[in-house]
């Protein structure tokens, strides 16, 4: 397949199908994330970069027999390795015997949050999530460093860029109706994550998707008036800072780093508050990193348009 556009669309469809498979495997939170990230943002970013590179792949006559051989050998070895694995769906597999029962049985008493995924994510494995948030933050910085925008382009673009879809009246009207609801849904996902599937990661991505939709329809300069690049850059750092700050406050109050029991007099209330704040931090970072990445790609397109 030499049309990369089709490749990218197919990978988006693949993500959506795998999201429904995750749902079938009881992983509601993962399915939610995969649907919003894989089928939404990832496809969008790939399309945005396709705009900058050529859409068609060059034809090659080279036949990768060696690669095929390597792949088949690896596959045979991996399948041989699976013969010792526990069967699919068995309840007494080693995975289910170690920490999982503790999480499932005691999280209600210790943390008081029905969604165990949220409590494990934000409380039991809070360090882990802090690390992941930092990775996202770093990736955002990396993209910013790679795709810098000069001041000159910014000034030129203020006069010059019309939105790509200025004439699409129906799209604009429907989007105007949908965008506030998308943003509200993002906030619902953010703060309802304790009780149902959802949380900071999904909410951040959905929020960013709403803003990106707005940017695509109404132009980069219009949306930059509300979401200035410097403000978003500040917010990426603020999210991580909020996360780390909660940890430090816990230390100041006499606990360990990220030990929310000490945030309030009642440990369960403290845990609630801690999880809420930490998820908010994650949401802010994820949303602003996604927005920054998209904006940087779009700035590149603008720059190319007016350089030529």
């Amino acid at each position: 397949m030499s049309d990369l556009f089709a490749v990218v669309m197919l990978s988006g469809i693949y993500s959506l199908i795998s999201a429904s498979l995750f749902l079938d495997l009881d992983a509601v939170d993962v399915a939610f994330t995969e649907a919003s990230v894989g089928a939404g943002i990832s496809t969008l970013l790939m399309l945005a970069s396709l705009k900058l590179v050529s859409r068609y792949q060059k034809k090659t006559r080279y036949k990768p027999i060696l690669a095929f051989f390597v792949v088949v050998t690896t596959g045979a070895m991996l399948i041989y390795g699976t013969l010792d694995m526990p069967h699919f769906g068995t309840a007494d597999a080693p995975v289910h015997t170690h920490v999982a029962p503790r999480y499932l049985n005691e999280s209600m008493g210790e943390i008081g949050v029905p969604n165990v995924v949220t409590s494990v994510l934000a409380s039991y494995r809070g360090y882990d999530t802090l690390g992941e948030t930092l990775v996202i933050f770093t990736a955002g910085i990396g993209v910013m460093a790679l795709l810098m925008v000069s001041k000159q382009t910014k000034q030129e673009s203020k006069k010059l860029i019309p939105a790509d879809m200025q004439q699409q009246i129906i799209l604009r009207i429907v989007a105007k109706m949908m965008i506030p609801l998308i943003l509200m849904f993002a906030l619902y996902v953010q703060f309802h994550g304790d009780y149902g599937p959802g949380g900071g990661f999904q909410a951040g991505v959905i929020f960013a998707a709403g803003i990106i939709l707005y940017t695509m329809l109404f132009g980069l300069s219009t949306s930059q008036e509300v979401f200035k690049a410097t403000t978003i850059e500040l917010f990426t750092a603020a999210g991580v800072l909020l996360y780390g700050g909660v940890g430090v406050v816990c230390m100041l109050l006499g606990g360990n780093f990220l030990d929310y029991d000490f945030l309030k007099h009642d440990p369960v209330h403290g845990q609630h508050l801690g999880i809420l704040l930490v998820e908010l931090g994650v949401g802010i970072t994820v949303a602003s990193v996604m927005m920054i990445i998209f904006f940087k790609f779009t700035w590149r397109t603008v720059k190319h348009k007016y350089k030529k």
């Binding site: 699409q168 129906i170 799209l171 429907v174 109706m177 949908m178 609801l181």
Partner: peptide
Amino acid sequence: LFSLLASTTASHAIAK
């Protein structure tokens, strides 16, 4: 409601 709104709009946009 959302799927009605979104899918019809998407079809319209693609056709256009």
